[in-house]
């Protein structure tokens, strides 16, 4: 039997492992996050991806932006496909040649792919699962997902006389992942690239299932200025709405502290069109107060201050 080498070719003409020419929107946070994850993981990886923006904009057939082995199957089974890849590597005795990274958007992770992810975490595969959290189904036109934040306007949670947008709170995916008793869970934000790099490297050095969630602004769906992608991501962390932390064996071991005095959530909300309705009527103030309470709860829960 002939075996092909799994390592990427030496003569890397590309600067990054995610080649230019992908069709992500201008200022896409997810493209940036994927670039940073691949850069940190290096060429000896095999990646799988759920259906979603990332898959669509990187693999416009017959082109591909991936400079590493990549496989996409369905929306729900990124984790299951990765499990198969990992087991195949083991069966061939080649598990030292490549690390396996499964990827998905927030919909493909928290809603549609949750059972496949849960199975992967339960079976204890040596895989890093990365969720690019842009807080809605952006690829199909901004429908709400399990990770859409409270009071956020999407096409399926519109704002109006009877609604302030999404009625439900953001699903606590990191805790759900950690509840499987896995060794490493982390959240990160595209605003802090060095942090992503460190976390990916740390995760890949640990054997067993790992879960990582990266906050990736979507200028199109969040109705924010593409130029402000990093600023929006930074404000989400600084206001406490997106706690950045590391969990090892179920315990929070490291958090990114926010600057004191804390930034009010208005700063984060007002630069995004998806929250613009909160500023249009006086009643919106009460809703903003509710969002501030969510941020305050996060600050207290994770000790961010």
């Amino acid at each position: 039997m002939t075996t092909t080498t799994l390592a990427a070719p030496k003569e890397q003409s590309c600067q990054t492992l995610l080649a230019s020419g992908h069709t992500a929107c201008t200022g896409c946070g997810e493209a940036l996050a994927a670039k940073l994850v691949l850069g940190a993981a290096g060429p000896n990886i095999i990646v799988t991806d759920a259906t979603g923006c990332l898959e669509v904009f990187t693999t416009r057939f017959p082109q591909s932006s991936w400079e590493v082995p990549f496989i996409h199957s369905l929306f729900e089974n990124s984790a299951a496909v990765a499990s198969g890849v990992e087991v195949a590597l083991k069966a061939l005795g080649r598990q030292n040649e490549a690390k396996v990274i499964a990827q998905g958007g927030d919909g493909g992770t928290a809603d549609i792919g949750l059972q496949a992810l849960s199975g992967m975490l339960e079976r204890g595969h040596d895989i890093l699962y990365v969720c690019y959290d842009n807080e809605a189904y952006m690829n199909t036109g901004v429908q709400r997902s399990g990770l859409t934040p409270f009071d956020c306007m999407t096409t399926t949670s519109p704002c109006g006389e009877l609604s302030w947008g999404n009625k439900h709170n953001k699903k606590d995916m990191p805790s759900i992942a950690a509840a499987h008793g896995i060794p490493y869970v982390a959240t990160a934000s595209v605003a802090f690239p060095k942090d992503i790099e460190n976390k990916v490297k740390k995760a890949l050095s640990i054997t067993g299932p790992k879960y990582m969630q990266i906050h990736s602004p979507c200028p199109l769906g969040w109705r924010s200025n593409p130029q402000l992608t990093i600023k929006v991501a930074k404000l989400a962390v600084q206001t406490g709405l997106y706690p950045v932390f590391e969990m090892e064996n179920g315990k929070v071991t490291k958090v990114r502290k926010i600057t004191t005095p804390k930034t009010p959530v208005e700063e984060y909300l007002k630069i995004q069109g998806r929250f613009a309705h909160l500023f249009k009527s006086p009643k919106g103030k009460e809703e903003i107060q509710k969002i501030q309470e969510i941020a305050d709860r996060n600050i207290e829960k994770y000790g961010l201050a």
């Binding site: 230019s20 069709t23 693999t59 057939f61």
Partner: peptide, 23 residues
């Protein structure tokens, strides 16, 4: 366009797609 089994695309071929025109 012919679709091969598994619809395999070559690595990094998106570079043919010059997105600078969007600017």
């Amino acid at each position: 366009m012919r679709l091969d089994l598994g619809a395999i695309a070559k690595a990094g071929t998106s570079k043919a797609n010059q997105t600078g025109g969007w600017r």
